[in-house]
Design a binder for these strands. Structure first.
Lengths: 250, 250
DNA sequence: CGCCGGTTTGAGTCCATTCAAGAGGAGTGG
DNA sequence: CCACTCCTCTTGAATGGACTCAAACCGGCG
């Protein structure tokens, strides 16, 4: 058991431990990472595309999203992040941020210097492996999103997004997959699904009419999970939730 | 200089060294990885979604692509891979393959056991870091592809793909960005851009009519790189080519 | 109360799709 | 050598899903 159960870095440790066994020393090293807790208001930027940040953020509470602005001014949202997620792990090894991260709601974050993360990764191979693992899962989710916006129709796309959000909410211990507050405007949903906000509106209405979801202001309830998964062509394998990675020392 | 300039693993070493400095010992450790060279014919699978492979492939020559088959039978291609790319690095830490990899052309590959990679990563932090780095770049490319299929129109999407292919070809030392053999059918191009093969055909014709590309059977020539970049809303930053990662020991 | 961001709804348009058929080329086998 | 098959590429015509433009509605808040 880690020394300090109250450390703000517990959500990060939990993410790392999910897939890789960490010894007591390793866990202590994670919690001992220098950090600073900060509040970021909804709408504010955490990372800006093109910047060269020297720190990395871990979300303790709240939600944020990764996005890019394209040449014609349109926006593409490529991920939603929540408690325990490390939002710019990229900047630990990549010099220039290739996308922006913006708070969706008021967020509580822990700010960790990237060189501290590099140092701990250099000292503890299991931690390096856990960080790498987390990046691999990120990549898997990104590929699924590519498939989602590239090949699915509007209702399926949206339902898929709602399923993923529900499962990850539950998995990170901050909600229930069957009924949750969705912290996104319809315009943000549109940018995450490659649709327009108008069409998102109509499609949500259609999903409700088909009895798949029940929605109030920004609240979503899923009536029947099985049917929802079918309608969203959703299979959680790509999230790599339950897996335990093989130990590093082969 | 590494001991054996003729080792089949040179392309892999080159990929790793691109971003992270590796000592002579580290380079030797990479080249000393147990491996077996194999030929995979075009169309054959390298990894199948759902499988649990215990080896990892490095491409020595030829091309392959990552893809998923969705619930309705449609296909989404999420990446093209070429010389030096490690095609299923995922399987080093993730148990179940979340997508398939298929040869586009006849490929020469080196097969490396995943546990050997885990072992070398555990022993040499810089190698672990280089592998992690490679995964981060993969993720960045995946996000760009999500934006591409989600928010760009057909001509821009295709042009973007052609630009990326050209640059990566040049960067991996197997071709010229301004004129190359494109080893993909129009149906594969469609699955990589979220279009239909019919529309890919018409769009290629349009790009040619606009004087952006010159095409023969499966050969592409780009007349003016600057114009091509503009037409494809292409900015190579997301490929993280020229960067050198900060050394691990912070 | 009036503003404002977000949501909802309608009408018309368009980009990309679907369906369908023909052309071209490579490979196979009689 | 030609007939045949298979796959890919090409083209046309019609359809449709999602978009654009535009206006109205709604709830929260200063």
């Amino acid at each position: 058991m880690p020394e300090n159960p109250e450390s703000p870095l517990q959500p990060m440790l939990r993410t790392l431990k999910r897939h890789c066994d960490l010894s007591v020393d390793e866990q202590a090293a994670v919690l001992a990472l220098p950090h600073q807790v900060r509040i970021i208001e909804g709408g504010n930027y955490m990372v800006r595309e093109g910047a060269q940040p020297d720190h990395c953020l871990v979300i303790l509470s709240g939600f944020c999203f990764r996005h890019k602005i394209l040449g014609d001014g349109s926006r593409s949202i490529s991920a939603i992040q929540m408690r325990g997620d490390m939002v710019d792990l990229h900047n630990v090894l990549l010099r220039v941020a290739d996308h922006s991260v913006q708070a969706l709601t008021r967020c509580e974050v822990a700010v960790i210097p990237t060189n501290a993360i590099r140092a701990v990764a250099a000292t503890f191979p299991h931690i390096a492996s856990a960080l790498w693992h987390s990046t691999l899962v990120d990549g898997s989710i990104a590929r699924e999103w590519t498939a989602n916006v590239g090949r699915r129709n509007a209702p399926t796309r949206l339902m898929h997004l709602l399923c993923e959000f529900g499962i990850r909410l539950e998995d990170s211990g901050v909600g229930d997959r069957l009924s949750y507050e969705l912290p996104m405007t319809q315009e943000q949903l549109a940018d995450a699904t490659g649709l327009t906000s108008v069409h998102v509106n109509r499609t949500l209405k259609e999903l409700a009419a088909r009895g798949l979801i029940d929605r109030r202001v920004r609240y979503v309830a899923i009536a029947d999970w099985k049917r929802a998964e079918e309608a969203g062509d959703f299979n959680s394998t790509y999230l790599h939730l339950a897996e335990q990675a093989p130990p590093l020392a082969g």
